[in-house]
Structure formats: C-alpha cells, structure tokens
C-alpha cells in the first residue's frame, strides 16, 4: 500500500483529535481526543518506518522506538491526567472545562 494512504488516515485522525479538543467541553472527551492525536502521530511514524525499511535503509526501525516512547508517555499522562480529572470532578461535580478558569484573576 502506498504510504500516502497512511498519511491521509493519520491527518484525518489528527484533525478529528484537534477539533475534538477545540470543540468539546467535557474533559474526558478532550483527553481522549488528545490520545487520538498522539496515535495519529504513532501511525505516521510506523508508516514511515516501513516505507524506509522497504527502501532498504537499515536504520529505519529507529522511528518505531519513538512510538514506544510516545506510548509510555501517553500512559503516564493518562495516569496523571485522569487523576486530575477525578479530583476536579470531586471538587466541582463536573468535568466541564469552562468552569476551570480559576487561574484567571
């Protein structure tokens, strides 16, 4: 399969993620959209890695290492982020981000 297909899919996923982050007010959904963006990047990394490997580059596998990094970071992020959201929910009985403007003023 040509690499373009992967790129288009990845762009589509990333844009969905971005729009989700921008438009939704529910923190958990935003969180999931962030994950979506991360995974769009992961997809791209894997696709390019494959492309270069097919082209005969011996070091092309290095890109996949990044994917693992991102997955680990994403996991850590989920752990911290979900905890925060849980705490916010406990405090304000809501996960709407528009009420989280306490830093202002």
């Amino acid at each position: 399969m040509p690499v373009q297909y992967y790129i288009f899919l990845s762009i589509a996923l990333f844009c969905i993620g971005v729009m989700g982050v921008l438009m939704r007010r529910n923190a958990i959904i935003i969180f999931m959209c962030v994950e979506l963006m991360l995974n769009a990047v992961n997809l791209l990394l894997v696709a390019f890695s494959k492309m270069w490997a097919d082209a005969g580059r011996v070091d092309a596998g290095g890109a996949q290492i990044f994917v693992f990094f991102i997955m680990v970071v994403a996991a850590a992020e989920v752990a911290a982020g979900l905890a925060i959201i849980v705490m916010v929910y406990r405090n304000s009985q809501s996960v709407d981000i528009n009420i989280m403007n306490r830093l202002k003023n």
């Binding site: 921008l22 007010r25 830093l103």
Partner: peptide
C-alpha cells in the same frame, strides 16, 4: 487575551 479559557488557548495554539 489571557482569559483563562483553556479552550481559547488551545484554539490560539492551533
């Protein structure tokens, strides 16, 4: 501009 609206910040970033 520093409105405190996280959504606005992200929007500005994008």
């Amino acid at each position: 501009l520093q409105s405190g609206q996280v959504g606005f910040y992200i929007f500005a970033m994008v």
